[in-house]
Design a binder for these strands. Sequence first.
DNA 1: ATTAGCATGTAAAAGGTTACATGATTTA
DNA 2: TAAATCATGTAACCTTTTACATGCTAAT
Lengths: 180, 180
Amino acid sequence: MSLPHAILTALLEKPSSGLELTRRFDKSIGYFWSATHQQIYRELGKLEQAGHIRALPAPVPARGQKKEYEVLPAGRAELGDWVGRSEDPKPMRSALLLRMRAAAIVGAEGLRAELERHLALHREQLDEYLAIEERDFPAERRRTEADRLRHLVLRGGVDLERFWVEWLTRALAELGRSEE
Amino acid sequence: MSLPHAILTALLEKPSSGLELTRRFDKSIGYFWSATHQQIYRELGKLEQAGHIRALPAPVPARGQKKEYEVLPAGRAELGDWVGRSEDPKPMRSALLLRMRAAAIVGAEGLRAELERHLALHREQLDEYLAIEERDFPAERRRTEADRLRHLVLRGGVDLERFWVEWLTRALAELGRSEE
DNA sequence: ATTAGCATGTAAAAGGTTACATGATTTA
DNA sequence: TAAATCATGTAACCTTTTACATGCTAAT
C-alpha cells in the first residue's frame, strides 16, 4: 500500500495536477516508484475523500480542466507515520531471468537479441539518471540532510541500472562462448 | 503473465506436487520468481485444464493426498514459444527507497533501524545464494550451455543482493554523518 | 470547422496477497 | 486419541494493467 504515500511525497515536493504527477512518475520519481495515470487519478480521488489532500480552488471547475492538488496536515501526518513503519522487501520477479532459466531447458533460441535489447534499454535509463544526478546534485557542495537522502535514493536507481548493464554484458559474453 | 511459465520451467526440471513446488519457489527458484502456494495451486489447475501438464496417476486420488504433476508436450511447446517472446523490463517499485525520499521531507525518524533490518535480511539472502552457488556450481569445471545459463541466473540473484548490501551500507554511513 | 494535444476520468480483466477451510498422515 | 504436520484447496480483497470515453483548448 505505497502508492498513496508516493503521491503524498510527490505532492509535498510540489503541488501538481494528475497529468503533471503522471509525468513526474515517468521521469524523476520512476527510479523508486512507478504508476500510470489511471492509478494516479483513482488514488487522488481516494486521498481527497480521506481528507489527506485537497484540490486547489479553480476558476472554472469542470471535466477536462486542470485540477491541482496540495497536501493537507492530515496527509503529512499520515506520511510521517508511514515512514516509520516496517515492511519486508518484496521478493524478486524478473521475467528475463526466468526466460534464461527456461532457456536452459528448451533452448536459447532468440534469447541473445532480447538480452541485447534489454542492455540498450538499461544503458539509456542509466544515462538519464546520470544526467539527473549531474543536474540536481552537482559536485561536492555543503548539502542538507534532505539533499543527502534524495541523492541516496537516486544513487539506488543509478546503481541498480549499473547492475543490469554489467550482468547483461556478462551474460552476453558467456552466451557467445559456444554459439559461434 | 509469467507465473505459468515459471511453473512449467520448474516442473520440467523436476516433476513435483503443489507443496513441493511451493518449497522450491521459496528456495532456489525465488531468486528470479516468487509465488505463494495459493497462486501455485490455482495455476496448476489452469495448466492442467489447458492440457499443458497432467497429474501423474495416484493410487488413491483424494483431497489432502499428494498429487504430482508433469509437463506434457503442449506445455513444453508453449514454454519454448514464450522464451522467444519480447517483453520490456518492469519499472521499479521499492517501498524502502520511497520511504527514504519521503523522509527527506517529513523527517528520518526511525528510518535507520529499518535500513539496518533490511541490510541484515539482504546479507542473509546473499549468504544463502552463495551457499547454493558453491553447492551447485563448484569451481571451474567443463560445463554445458544449460549449466552456464543456470549459473548466470543465480549470478543475477547474487549480484542483486550484493547491490542492496552495498547501497544500504553506504546509506547508513551517509545517514550517520549528521545524526551524532 | 477540424484536428491535435492537453487533461480527467471509467470499466474490465489480470495478477497477487491474505485469511480461512479441510482432509490425510504421523507422532506423542 | 489428541496434536502436529503435510497437503490441497476456496474466497475475498487489493493492486496493477489495458482499453476505452469524454471534455476542454489552441492552432490550421
